[in-house]
Amino acid sequence: MNLTTLFLANWPAIARSLATHIMLVVVSVGLGTITAIPLGIVLTRHRRFAPAVLAVAGMIQTIPGLVMLGFALVLLGIGTVPALAVLTIYSILPILQNTYTGISEVSPAYTDAAKGIGMTAMQVLFKVELPLARETIISGIRISTVYIVSWATLAGMIGAGGMGDWIWTGLATYNTGYILIGAIPSALLAFAFSAALGGLQRLLTPRGLRRQP
């Protein structure tokens, strides 16, 4: 059977898997973002903890996905929740790192001026630091998303669905067609997310900070 026929024959199921996959990515990166940005901000306020926290986050990142999933399986059982937990943890580091770096790299000239003219700490953060760090932070989210699109194929192993289902079935039955049905849309999804976030990044970069044509 050629790939196109296989694809068309299984289209509704593929679409369902894709939807699940997207859900896994969006929810875990979303959760990762709302954890990582505040944590990154806190780190810039307590810089002496930053190296330790970033080192720990980096270490977690290097734990192989399968090992992580194993833990999640033991602790949380089978299904969507353990998958999301693992993916969320993986999504944190790039965003955390970029938030911390982005804010740290805001020139003291701006924060000093902001404080000097009477902004509160919150105003300095929201009016100056975050806008100036925005490009870097979104770039962290983008890196994270592309990662998670591929990590999410592992979720199929613990019954969370997604494109991973096709890949694992294909591997188990030596069916290259199934593997490709899982792999190709995943790759395209990674591209699509990356492009969308790239656009968002450009859109949200304050005009005064955009590179001059």
């Binding site: 003291p108 000239a109 000093d112 001026a113 000097g116 009477g118 009016k127 100056v128 304050p206």
Partner: peptide, 18 residues
Amino acid sequence: LRRSIGYVIQQIGLFPNM
């Protein structure tokens, strides 16, 4: 207090996003 006192620094510090 700082809102009632002008402040100018050498590095200028105009906000580049504004």
